[in-house]
Amino acid sequence: MPRGGLKVGTFVKTASPQVIEVLGQSRLDFAVVDAEHAPFDRLTLDLMMTASCAVGLPLAVRIPEVSAPVILSTLDIGAAGLLVPHVDTAQVARDVIAMTRHRGGVRGFSGSPRFAGYGTLSMAKSLDAGEGAFVMCQIESAEAVENAAAIAAVDGVDGLFIGYADLALSMGLESPQDPRVTAAAERVIETGRAAGKTVGMFVSNAAERDRFAARGVEWIVVSSDQSLLRLAADALVPAR
């Protein structure tokens, strides 16, 4: 998963490896398969990873839940990183990191999956390969904002990802554009940067990308494959 400097990706919500192949021909730095809010089973995720390898587009997965089996299977098939929803406390972050690690963690080991070269790597090299998962913790509740510094301080957490919509709901609001949500997001940006961690977020368009990049957000997920397709199709039709 790309590290350092501004990196731009998009969400993938369509269960088709051809989408990854097409995006791999673009200038995107990465993509995120949204297994939390879109219909991806384990076999489909595996096909998405096959396409990722074919075109050299790093693929993270927003997992549907924090559980050892989900994290194990996602990393075994070769995901370059995890976007982990609802990390509200440092303890949840520590649990997540333990689930990603063979050494000193609770991740089960097999040398046969894609991440270990289908049995071609020694056990030691396979264990080394398993240490490299890029882990972004979603900060999407008022509680998580309060605990952001402690979450960022957990060894193995690479960054904080601001989840605007759920953050607004947790604050009793129904607009991600509410100034109180923006203020909370600014706190997370400042906290992540002070901790030397990557700060990420979802934005709808290039203007938002540039605005938040200027504030130090480095890992930006712009729109989704669905939105990009719809907007491109709309652009073909004259206004009427």
Results as ranks from 00 to 15, higher is better:
G200A: 06
S175A: 15
R230M: 14
W219V: 07
F202I: 11
A124V: 13
R94Y: 01
S224Q: 08
R62D: 02
I151N: 06
M48T: 06
M49H: 05
P64T: 09
G172C: 04
G104P: 03
R193V: 12
S16A: 13
E146W: 03
L47A: 14
R215E: 13
A214G: 15
A183N: 06
I151M: 07
R3V: 12
T182A: 13
G24K: 04
I139G: 00
S170M: 12
S224E: 03
H86S: 12
L231A: 14
G5K: 08
R240P: 10
R211T: 12
Q18R: 15
R230L: 15
I63C: 05
A51S: 14
D178P: 06
S26G: 04
A124W: 08
E140K: 03
A149Q: 11
T50I: 15
E146N: 10
S52D: 06
A142K: 13
R103F: 04
L167A: 05
A207Y: 08
V157N: 08
R215T: 11
R230K: 12
E208L: 04
V87W: 05
F202A: 14
R180Y: 05
A116P: 00
A207T: 13
V12A: 06
A149P: 00
A194D: 10
E21M: 11
Q25A: 15
S204P: 04
S73D: 12
C53I: 13
S26D: 10
G163I: 06
I189G: 05
G56V: 04
V22T: 03
V33F: 01
I71W: 02
F134Y: 15
G119E: 09
D166T: 06
L169D: 04
G196V: 09
E174C: 15
K197H: 08
V203A: 07
V12M: 04
A90W: 02
A235F: 07
G105W: 08
D155P: 06
G132F: 03
G117L: 09
F30P: 04
D34R: 11
F109I: 11
A233L: 15
V106N: 11
T10S: 11
G172R: 07
R107H: 05
E21H: 12
K125S: 15
A144K: 02
L169P: 01
M123E: 15
H37I: 13
E208T: 08
M201F: 01
R193W: 10
G156F: 02
A31M: 05
S126N: 03
K13E: 07
G132K: 14
E218H: 03
V145G: 04
